[in-house]
Write a protein that binds this DNA or RNA. Structure first.
Length: 537
RNA sequence: GCGGGUGUAGCUUAAUGGUAAAGCCCCUGCCUUCCAAGCAGGAUACGUGGGUUCGAUUCCCAUCACCCGCUCCA
């Protein structure tokens, strides 16, 4: 399938538009049109229904160690700035970068180190980003090459001072960039803010800076105690949240896949550390199956366990659920959802302050003054299990899904073109969106076969009856074949047609989008029939 | 951020330094008894901003957006 065709259909039929299109668009931002909003709502509602509202907290679900509770939350997008300092986002999302005009390389400003050296009457600051114990050695090699000296002429190099970080250098014009051949190719350092900065308050200055959240998860962690204290949930339990998040992606691209404003569906699942590995496996498998159940094909979906080296510093295990999007090269997959075992990192961070890895464990990162670099809330986030009489900081399993990415995957999966015979038996091209009935923006369309002899009256009555429960569409324009095709193109799974016989015996035909088969059903059964077909029971 | 490509109607495409064309879609009417039928009529476009020119959709510059590759991606 060519992505272009899907993008075109999305625009033509009102699934996805470019943001601010009349002003030329805005990179990394997208709007959902009349049908897109229904599709995305259905994705989110399916998730909420399956994970939260419809969760059976009495039974032990297949693969789950024990029964568990699920509850929800809806946090503010802007939170206390300290949240992001303790979570680690503040430090990790703020990078000063320098670009090299010669090599087009881009470097973290603070990771470039170097040393002043003079030879042959020239003084330059040689740099490297090599992460070695002996940067002086690496720099000597560069110096010899730069000044065109042999190894035995090394004494001609007059080093000035020790190896220091690039930010100590005021004037970059005498700096030799890490991979460059000539000096002065580095741009001034530029700040890359991966978090969206904003100002709180009408008179706000920089001191009132706050951030649009880069993930919804932190809102759940900081409310952990509130939920425990107010809802009678017992560990193990999960808190779910759906909401917008914002990241200043350096390169937004690939339709809605990499957007700067996007919506997440996240669960933070809190459990006893002794059972966390089992819960991790449970959530990983459960979330994978969810995508399959809603129609993603097994061939295009994969679970990818992260290698130990790839794991974030706090993570004990992470698996990505990935989809083979058609805009990716063959064999490549894009992340739909990450399921991470985060241990007690998040709750501890908000208790004690920003954590860093130390040996095999985590400890509070200290500033130059020996105090915590980012101080935590000091609130006790530990949990007392009244049955086992254990006190512990719960471990967290985090299934974090992208609502827009999921929606995009369902759009890609649904798109298909096929040949079907027309009235005269000739094969005609048909574009059909094969959405799972739960996700289809329109559940059924109702047509009078022709616009007379009581058919429109009867059809509109059926339409009204269905409309009370489902998003349905009435169409009496043009030939019925055209109306069927129009519905195929937006993925409506069922079309109900009132014909001449309907007036005689109070029956209508119901046509299946995928098989094109028609069945005759009683008008009185229409609502129930549609309900059965959509819910599958 | 760099390099290359592309921007004409809702979509797909044409032509042009001097009135911008077509097909599909859409709307109105007629006709229509099951898979994009027909007839008649209608609406809608040169991404944005400068410059050159008597005149620019066309040439030049900038900008924005999209696509491809590189870079980046907690």
């Amino acid at each position: 399938m060519e992505m272009e065709k899907l993008v075109s259909l999305c625009k033509r039929r009102g699934f996805v538009f470019q943001s601010s299109e009349i002003y030329g668009g805005l990179r990394g931002f997208w709007d959902y049109g009349p049908l897109g909003v229904e599709l995305k709502r259905n994705v989110k509602e399916a998730w909420w229904r399956d994970m939260v509202a419809g969760h059976d907290d009495i039974a032990t679900l297949p693969g789950a160690p024990t029964p568990y509770d699920m509850t929800g939350l809806d946090c503010s997008i802007i939170m206390h700035p300290q949240v992001w300092k303790c979570s680690g986002h503040f430090d990790l999302f703020h990078d000063f970068m320098v670009d090299c005009r010669e090599t087009k390389g881009r470097y973290r400003y603070d990771q470039v180190k170097g040393r002043w050296v003079e030879a042959k009457g020239k003084t330059v600051f040689l740099t490297t980003i090599a992460d070695t114990d002996d940067p002086a050695k690496v720099l000597e090699q560069r110096a010899l090459k730069f000044f065109d000296l042999r190894a035995k002429q090394a004494e001609q190099l007059q080093w000035k001072g020790e190896v220091v970080a690039l930010p100590t250098v005021q004037d970059l014009s005498q700096v030799l960039a890490p991979d460059a051949k000539e000096v002065g190719t580095l741009t001034p350092p530029r700040e890359f803010n991966l978090m969206f900065k904003t100002i709180v308050g009408a008179l706000g200055s920089d001191e009132d800076a706050a951030f649009l959240r880069p993930e919804t998860a932190q809102g759940i962690f900081v409310n952990f105690k509130n939920v425990c204290d107010s809802s009678r949930v017992k560990v193990p339990f999960g808190i779910a949240q759906i909401g917008k998040s914002f990241r200043n992606e350096i390169t937004p691209k690939q339709f809605t896949f990499r957007s700067r404003e996007f919506e997440q569906m996240e669960i933070e699942f809190f459990c006893n550390p002794k059972q966390s590995a089992d819960w991790y496996r449970y959530w990983r498998d459960r979330r994978f199956q969810w995508y399959l159940d809603l129609g993603l094909s097994r061939e295009r979906l994969q679970m990818r366990e992260h290698e130990a080296a790839e794991l974030a510093h706090y993570s004990v295990g992470t698996a990505d659920i990935e989809y083979a999007f058609p805009f990716l090269p063959p064999g490549e997959f894009g992340e739909l959802e990450g399921v991470a075992h985060r241990a007690d990192f998040d709750l501890r961070s908000h208790m004690e302050g920003k954590l860093v890895k130390q040996g095999n464990g985590l400890s509070v990162e200290l500033g130059p003054d020996g105090k915590p670099r980012h101080k935590g809330s000091g609130k006790d986030m530990s949990y007392f299990d009244e049955i086992t009489r254990e006190k512990f900081i719960p471990h967290v399993i985090e299934p974090s899904a992208g609502a827009d990415r999921g929606t995009l995957a369902f759009l890609c999966e649904a798109y298909s073109e096929e040949k079907v015979p027309d009235a005269s038996g000739k094969l005609e091209e048909r574009t059909v969106m094969r959405f799972h009935p739960r996700l289809a923006p329109i559940k059924a369309a109702i047509f009078p076969l022709v616009n007379k002899e009581g058919m429109p009256e009867m059809a509109s009555e059926i339409y009204r009856a269905l409309k009370k429960q489902f998003n349905v569409f009435y169409d009496d324009k043009g030939a019925v074949g055209r109306r069927y095709r129009r519905q195929d193109e937006v993925g409506t799974p069922y079309c109900i047609t009132v014909d001449g016989q309907s007036i005689q015996d109070q029956t209508v035909t119901i046509r299946d989008r995928d098989s094109l088969k028609q069945e005759r059903i009683k008008v009185a059964d229409a609502v129930e029939e549609v309900r059965k077909r959509i819910t599958g029971c």
